[in-house]
Design a protein around this nucleic acid. Structure first.
Lengths: 330, 330
DNA sequence: TTGTAGGCGTTATCAC
DNA sequence: GTGATAACGCCTACAA
């Protein structure tokens, strides 16, 4: 592989001049710039990123932490991020945290060793102040997650509104007995708190009380959905509608409900979250909350690159619109 | 960030000794090893990968090229690869080729600059001899794709058998009029040739002739499936069964078929490929060909690391089993 | 406008 | 067993 020295030899100029050309610095005569450029082309020279990193330069690599890539929400998000980054000449290094604190830390350490210029975090497992201690080593951006501190730029979706829209829609359809199923907890402060607030807000407006028996927490998969549906079928007092935190779970519910002879939406209305491809594949097609994943990824890269270029940038946050997609399951 | 020099100062030993300890070299006394190890722990020292790379060491990073991450087959594959690599202390750098030759080349160039030790390619866009020219810069492994040359180790699935099993199953169910839908071409040599061979083999055994009107090439998405089903419905002479190259396409077909008032599998049997999560979500549940994605990823990493440790390793290839999963759509 | 020289953090070579 | 020292490829004071 050709190095800068090869270019120096071929061009007959100095390392400095060559380096200046490579980095688009001023103070190089037109003629010399030409000569260097030609030599570079002739040799097929590409600067060695390791040397640059060692020298303390930018890596043009952005890290992305996601819980798991097989979750379509995140694979679509990663796709958007990767495409946007590539356009700007950045590489993307992806890590799955699997919701493991240690893996998250291991990945953040890449900042310390200048392996990545910045990290986009789509979920934070460790406490925010631990994460914050890595800020001095590189840029950190929160995407689709947040902390109640103005320490990181955040690109968010309005989850309160998302849940609110969904639940209000169920109420408008005449439902009063509404179950709630979340991937987080049913706390005011825990994971998924925003959606919980949206849920509560819609119920409060309609003066409906929460039935604790109809609250299901920490549910993520198709299997989870099936299991819950079995439980619901056995209840004496059944809900007439269910708001779920994921299309996957909603999908499982629909399948199991049909298995059990229930008609959707007549016996039970179901609403998902994400608007994943399966939402349109399910029968009946799933009413759900669409999250603008592509925008989320693009905006994240845009802001990240802005941070990289100007590390002292003011910390701003962005909230992207979220919308209700009504199909057949409600 | 602590460097080796910090460890040197704290331990009172030389760089050489410290480096030896870090790299598990012999010729360090037990006592000194202890001292160094303690200093490392105290400082939270981590070797700087950029410096190592520059020095010509391994990067402990493996690149993976996939066509697109939003295809569940590849997101599951990437997941398996990432998990397996992480266990071995390797990072994974993912690139989507989007089936673009240039992007593939751009990624292969990471080998030249020692950004990655090796690359796992899940699809090759450029000619194999171009790819081969990168072999001198690092290890290249073909995963789920192959060339008819013994130049790269390959981890493959037996696609001939996969297609054969599916089509034979349709024939056993009494079908004679079988349509075929592929993500590749219907050539003897082009993309998807193996599945074509499997398809032909099964037909030949039953002395069934191919109807060219029932061959659909370059089909990938749910939308493609819907479109094809519309075409089929309009045909005077309709097939009674369809073998598809993807669960996505099969899913689209099922949806559209139902829309058009067809009953599956009675009016039309449909078989997918991949056994993606939607296969179980579809109604009726989809008969499909299961590809052992996790094994594919694990084996790929296993062989890649073997290659990295022993670059002169004999080039071996592996073929993983593939199986028919019978559900309700046939 | 151009060139020289030093250092980023690491490992390998060689001498002790 | 141990320790100087050079080298990997690059960028940037500083000097000219």
């Amino acid at each position: 592989m050709a190095t800068i020295s090869d270019v120096v030899k071929l061009s007959g100029l100095s390392k400095t001049t060559v380096s200046r050309v490579i980095n688009n610095h001023p103070y190089v005569s037109k003629e010399n710039r030409e000569i260097v450029l030609n030599s570079i082309k002739e040799l097929g020279y590409v600067p060695n990123p390791s040397a640059r990193r060692l020298r303390g330069q930018l890596t043009t690599t952005i890290g992305v932490i996601i819980p798991r890539i097989v979750n379509p929400f995140f694979s679509y998000l990663v796709n958007a991020i990767e495409q946007a980054a590539f356009k700007q000449g950045y590489q993307v290094l992806i890590s799955q945290s699997n919701e493991d604190k240690n893996k998250e830390i291991a990945f953040l350490n890449l900042l310390k060793t200048k392996q990545v210029d910045g990290i986009i975090m789509t979920s934070i497992e460790n406490d925010w102040d631990i994460i914050q201690s890595y800020k001095e080593y590189g840029s950190i951006l929160l995407c689709n997650d947040y902390v109640n501190q103005d320490v990181f730029p955040m690109i968010r979706l309005d989850q309160v509104k998302g849940a609110y829209l969904g639940v209000r829609h169920l109420i408008e359809r005449g439902h009063q007995k509404i179950a709630y199923c979340t991937g987080g907890l049913f706390d005011d402060e825990g994971k998924g708190k925003d959606r919980n607030h949206g849920f509560q807000k819609a119920l409060n407006e309609a003066a409906i009380k929460v039935n604790p028996k109809w609250i299901f927490i920490d549910q993520h998969t198709v299997e989870d959905g099936k299991r819950i549906m079995k439980q619901i079928v056995e209840m004496d007092d059944r809900p007439t509608a269910i708001f779920t935190g994921s299309d996957q779970v909603a999908g499982g519910m629909i399948m199991e409900a049909k298995e059990q002879g229930l008609t959707i939406p007549d016996d039970l209305a179901i609403i998902g979250f994400d608007d994943q491809p399966i939402a349109e594949i399910l029968d009946p097609k799933l009413t759900t909350i669409r999250q603008p994943v592509d925008q989320l990824g693009e905006k994240s890269i845009e802001v990240m690159i802005e941070m990289l270029k100007n590390p002292d940038m003011e910390i701003k946050s962005y909230e992207l619109p979220i919308e209700l997609i009504v199909r057949q399951s409600t």
